[in-house]
Amino acid sequence: MDATNTLAAPPLAQSRVRPGRRRADAVLRGFCALATLLGVIVLGSILLMLIVQGVRGFTSTLLTQPTPGPGSEGGGIANAVLGSLVLTTIGIVIATPVGVMAGTFLAEYGRTSKLSFVIRFLNDILLSAPSILIGLFIYTLMVRPMGSYSGWAGGVALAIIATPVIVRTTEDMLSLVPGTLREAGVALGAPPSTVIMKVTWRAASAGIVTGIILALARIAGETAPLLFTALNNNSWFNADLMGGIPNLPVMIYQFALSPYPNWQQLAWAGALLITMTILALSVIARVVIKPQRAR
């Protein structure tokens, strides 16, 4: 969106325009403004709901105690927060190298090859594939053979969701690096891997980091793939990450629909926490990407 491309519609010369045309124009302007207003109102109402309902749940024990059992009072969501951190970390640690390398392949080695075309296409499909199907896949691949729900299965499921995001942004950002930079590197006698690592990656680093943050924001709130992989539990989890592992999204899902008021309260507090984290990540990602786009 450069300045030349943001031509605003000029005001109509009222007297010259037939009433029918003027009316159609007014209807369009009104509808478009209304649609945008609606979007803003929905976001505002979601945030308002979370703040009104969630703030009451911010007690002193919220981040220090694990989730309480059914019907028992007090407790917090410390185990779910920690579990979510572990799961997203596993997801992003797996997805980052795979995603960056695959994106590098698409942008640097196989820009025009048939294989890259196919992979690019399938990556775009994977990017929008229903996340619940990824849950079913990991259930068949890991949960059933291993005989139990586990943090590893949850982490891998999240990694599968994060990878296409990173592949896509890495490729897009590397494609924006001018070819002359690579040529300059090659002219100095650097082998391709050195050119990629020391020149193109460095030139596109802000964009690649943005991709990783966006992927993080995407998987932090994912619920569906965790239902059959990490599940949930009401206590601290094992250090080997086997068995159900507590996590915020599934905790919110189960507690929000539960009949116990204190569980519902914890679900709201968790919802507020997770949404604010994700929105903050998204805003950070947009701030990081700014200098890249400006070029």
């Binding site: 943001t6 605003a8 519609a9 302007r29 478009c32 403004a33 945008t36 979007g39 803003v40 929905v42 976001l43 109402s45 979601i46 709901m49 979370l50 924001a217 932090a220 709130g221 994912e222 619920t223 569906a224 999204p249 919110i252 899902y253 929000a256 679900a267 919802a271 997770i274 949404t275 994700i278 929105l279 990540l281 998204s282 805003v283 947009r286």
Partner: peptide
């Protein structure tokens, strides 16, 4: 793209994009 005054374009676009970042479970609760 057509009607928004220039000063409001970025914040409004950002608001709409943030709608995409809200996790689906939050939409469910809402």
């Amino acid at each position: 793209t057509q009607l928004c005054p220039n000063w409001a374009r970025k914040p409004v676009a950002m608001t709409i994009e943030l709608l995409a970042a809200v996790p689906s479970i939050i939409y469910g609760m809402w």
